[in-house]
């Protein structure tokens, strides 16, 4: 048991170290997040009233796309240098390593997006009452996005052109999170209670926590075996 926990911690630290040494990959999703969100005022209308209506959905869509963009790298370098083979030949449970990797990845993508989100909220004239809802919903929703994305990343890791494919596989699965996430922000803006939405986002996170690492582990095994 202790060695299992040890592996979890070691993997977590390793992935954080790796991420910090590849600084561009670290900030790219955040920059992408900002750019996508600023496309809407430019492309649709800079009118504050109009934007403030769209803001909950826009921020969420941008967060979704930014998470997706960052997912592809989750297993890629491990696949290329053979670390993934070593990982799959460990007598320790694979799902645990996957979970640890996703957690490290989320800290640097999902959590970072959550922290930057208010900036986007301001850019898109999201009423300030909506900010707590925005951050809470992203905090609960983005881990689910990372977990589901990990399955897509694991399925496409061995493919040369996995980038577009992973969005095709994963985006439809993101829809429920998008619905409840943006609705939570909407509710916060209009002063309605948030608990229901957050509970639903939490329930989806629990389900994803339980199933996604196992599915991603199985997918990795298949991808490496192929």
């Amino acid at each position: 048991m202790s060695s299992t926990l040890q592996l979890f911690k070691q993997t977590f630290r390793r992935d954080l170290t790796l991420a910090f040494r590849r600084k561009s990959e670290l900030v790219n999703p955040l920059i992408f997040f900002l750019i996508v969100a600023s496309l809407f005022p430019i492309g649709v209308s800079p009118e504050p009233n109009f934007l403030s209506q769209l803001a909950p959905g826009l921020v969420w869509v941008a967060a979704l796309l930014a998470t997706l963009l960052s997912m592809e790298t989750l297993f890629k370098s491990d696949y290329e240098d053979g670390s993934l083979e070593q990982l799959l030949l460990s007598p320790q449970p694979v799902f645990l390593v996957v979970l640890s990797k996703v957690l490290a990845h989320w800290l640097l993508s999902g959590l970072a997006l959550t922290l930057v989100a208010p900036l986007l909220g301001v850019m898109l004239f999201l009423p300030s009452e909506g900010m707590p809802g925005l951050m809470l919903s992203l905090l609960l929703g983005t881990p689910t996005l990372s977990l589901i994305g990990a399955i897509g990343a694991a399925l496409t890791v061995g493919l040369r052109r996995g980038g577009v494919l992973i969005s095709l596989l994963v985006l439809p699965l993101y829809i429920p999170v998008l619905i409840f996430g943006s609705s939570a922000v909407q509710a916060a803006v209009t002063g309605l209670p948030l608990d229901g939405y957050l509970a639903l986002l939490g329930a989806m996170l629990a389900l994803a926590l339980a199933l996604a690492p196992i599915a991603a582990g199985a997918a990795l095994r298949i991808s490496v075996s192929g």
Binding site: T17, R21, E80, D81, G82, L87
Partner: peptide, 20 residues
């Protein structure tokens, strides 16, 4: 493929291998 991550030092690489 040796399972050595290019962005990690020799020590760090072995450390993770030991955990695995």
């Amino acid at each position: 493929q040796t399972g050595v991550s290019a962005m990690l030092t020799a020590e760090e690489n072995l450390h993770w291998q030991c955990a695995l």
